[in-house]
Design a binder for these strands. Structure first.
Length: 564
RNA sequence: GCCCCGUUCGUCUAGUGGCCCAGGACACCGCCUUCUCACGGCGGCGACACGAGUUCAAAUCUCGUACGGGGUACCA
């Protein structure tokens, strides 16, 4: 099958990612950015980051920063757009500015050109009138379509009259009375019938262009050769193509990507986090969250009553309940401890496949293999298990010092207590212990809390105590009493000598390693889980080990043994 | 409602008329390893949505049905 293109082979590729700055970088957006970036990279072209902030009510500078930070973390760099090293006003590239709010003059110029050509006109219909017509059509079970006859035929006098009366107007594009066909790299030739097309708005009453006008003009004036975006834009494309044709501008090549959904088929949206937090809070019937989160009980009840989906409240609940919210934005995945290359490798497989001799790969491999022809048509569901597995493998394969540095950076950003409480040597030992048993960079933080809390803050898990300590007349306590002097006498308190000591004890007492390791675990962690016990003791250090044995014996032994 | 698109194991996918009673990966199950939790090794379960048609031959082509998705905004 041939793949028609509107661009000569020797023209260099220009792609772009054009998010609207209304929050964090969404995982779906990240994949769109990845594909556009990879295509440009593969063809030694240019990748543009353009900020689509024409919706004045929803756009924020903070959101732009979030998106920039997310892209940078992923390692997707752009040659034109906001300069990530500079304040937001500074921009890279020579086809800018790259904020749509700074391109209003350009849009006006093209809109005026369309008006002058008779291809655009003012329309004084109000949203209310339009809605009424829509409702009317619906109640008559009829397909609604904007009726252009009245506004198209307004005389100059009538227009002047409306304007002097102060009636607000929009500008609409006069859609040609013909079917529109365009080529899409994923869907092939797409034709939309004339009857499905209407005179759409290109300039709002506030004087801002609509998305359709802005995106079309920007892509054309920035020299974008390949528009790679989500499938939700497929049926916007006839509008863009018609605009381009009217203006005599070259059509870019299009590729519309399948969408990404949750495993239950719902859209991956930021509201999933609120939903999950709310459901957990209701299930456990909590009345308040940790004071440290700064969320009041009023905030909480507003959230529980669905008055707000405030993400900060959702996180406060998650913190209080030790709950992981579903990852939706790139920042969520970063916080959960996924490696950027793994995340990218995984999401690249959602809707794109090249025959996979392997499925574990990173950015370089994607660039090497990427082709628009290998993009699928059908939507994909996001599978966190698979992502987690890939992440585990990548973490395990890391050189130990590299893992330590990555984990350190993660702690600095999300769990500073580890860096404050542990010296370099202890941190390094802990990193080594956890590397092979961690799915994410966050997991050792969650599982290793007992390494950084005070000796008297250990909470003993009742089941673990019963099973490993109190059972058989408190054999666990007996073992601890046996071990204590031997451990105290150990001069070189590192993993190897500790291991030797435990093995010797095992032989002398004629018991399995488990009979020794598990009571120690309970004393050290309060639970039955930790890294190998010799490493655990070495990292904790002799004073802490002895203190925790003593505490376990003093606090726990009496009550447990009397209850036994 | 209307217009379009899609549909291979639970999930992501390989597959472009004979190589496929359908291959890989994740999940799941079992065994091995084991001081706990993990990691790891080996094995197993498991799909062409349904119905017609074309053909010597169909997961692959055609039609219909069902289901899923997108669009139908002065949001992008």
């Amino acid at each position: 099958m041939n793949s028609p293109t509107n661009h000569p082979a020797n023209q260099s590729v220009v792609t772009r990612f054009a998010p609207s700055p209304t929050g964090q970088l969404h995982i779906g957006g990240a994949r769109t950015a990845l594909f556009a970036w990879a295509y440009a990279k593969k063809h030694a072209g240019q990748f543009i980051l353009r900020i689509e902030d024409t919706d004045q009510t929803r756009s924020t500078p903070q959101a732009t920063c979030n998106i920039i930070e997310g892209l940078q973390w992923l390692g997707l760099d752009w040659q034109a757009g906001p300069d990530p090293q500079q304040p937001l006003e500074k921009q890279l590239g020579d086809t800018g500015p790259y904020f749509q709010s700074q391109r209003l003059d350009t849009y006006r110029q093209y809109i005026q050109q369309l008006i002058d050509m008779g291809r655009a006109y003012k329309c004084f219909k109000t949203p209310d009138e339009l809605n009424a017509a829509r409702q009317q059509a619906k109640s008559e079970k009829r397909a609604y379509k904007y009726d252009s006859t009245e506004s198209r035929n307004l005389t100059p006098d009538q227009i002047a009259e409306c304007e002097s009366a102060g009636k607000p107007s929009v500008i609409r594009f006069r859609m040609p009375d013909a079917d529109v066909t365009f080529h899409d790299a994923v869907f092939g030739d797409v034709t939309v019938k004339s009857s499905e097309l209407e005179d759409f708005i290109i300039q709002k009453t506030d004087g801002f262009p609509t998305f359709h006008l802005a995106v079309t003009i920007d892509d054309a004036t920035m020299g974008v050769t390949h528009v790679i975006r989500g499938q939700d834009h497929l049926y916007n494309t006839p509008k863009h193509v018609a605009l381009l044709d009217a203006l005599g501008l070259t059509r870019p090549d299009y590729a519309h990507l399948p969408l990404i959904f949750n495993s239950d088929g719902s859209k991956m949206s930021k509201r999933d986090k609120a939903k999950t937090a709310r459901a957990a809070a209701k299930a456990q019937n909590i009345q308040s969250v940790d004071d440290a989160t700064g969320v009041s009980s009023d905030d909480l009840s507003a959230f529980l009553n669905k008055k707000t989906d405030d993400i900060n409240i959702a996180f406060a609940i998650a913190d209080t309940l030790k709950l992981t919210l579903p990852e939706i934005d790139v920042e969520d995945f970063r916080r959960s401890g996924y490696l950027p290359d793994v995340l990218l490798g995984y999401i690249s497989q959602l809707g794109w496949s090249h025959g996979h001799p392997t499925e574990r790969y990173g950015l370089d491999y994607i660039v090497e293999k990427f082709a628009l022809a290998d993009i699928n048509k059908s939507n994909a569901k996001f599978d966190r298990d698979k992502l987690a597995k890939f992440n585990t493998e990548a973490i395990t394969a890391l050189p130990p010092d590299e893992f330590r540095e990555l984990w350190k950076a993660h702690c600095a950003r999300y769990e500073p207590a580890y860096l404050e409480k542990l010296d370099d040597a202890a941190f390094a030992l802990l990193a080594t212990s956890y590397q092979e048993r961690s799915r994410t960079l966050q997991e050792p933080c969650d599982n290793g809390q007992f390494f950084i809390i005070a000796d008297d803050a250990i909470e003993y898990d009742a089941k673990a105590v019963k099973k490993f300590m109190a059972k058989n007349d408190g054999e666990g306590f007996t073992m601890l009493r046996t071990l204590r002097p031997a451990l105290e006498a150990l001069d070189d308190f590192t993993a190897a000598p500790i291991h030797a000591l435990i093995e010797r004890t095992s032989t002398e007492q004629a018991v399995g390693m488990g009979k020794i390791a598990q009571p120690l675990r309970v004393a050290m962690t309060g639970s039955s889980v930790s890294p190998p016990i010799d490493q655990t003791l070495a990292i904790l250090g002799k004073p802490t080990v002895l203190a925790r044995i003593d505490r376990c014996l003093n606090v726990l032994a009496e009550t447990a043994e009397s209850n036994a």
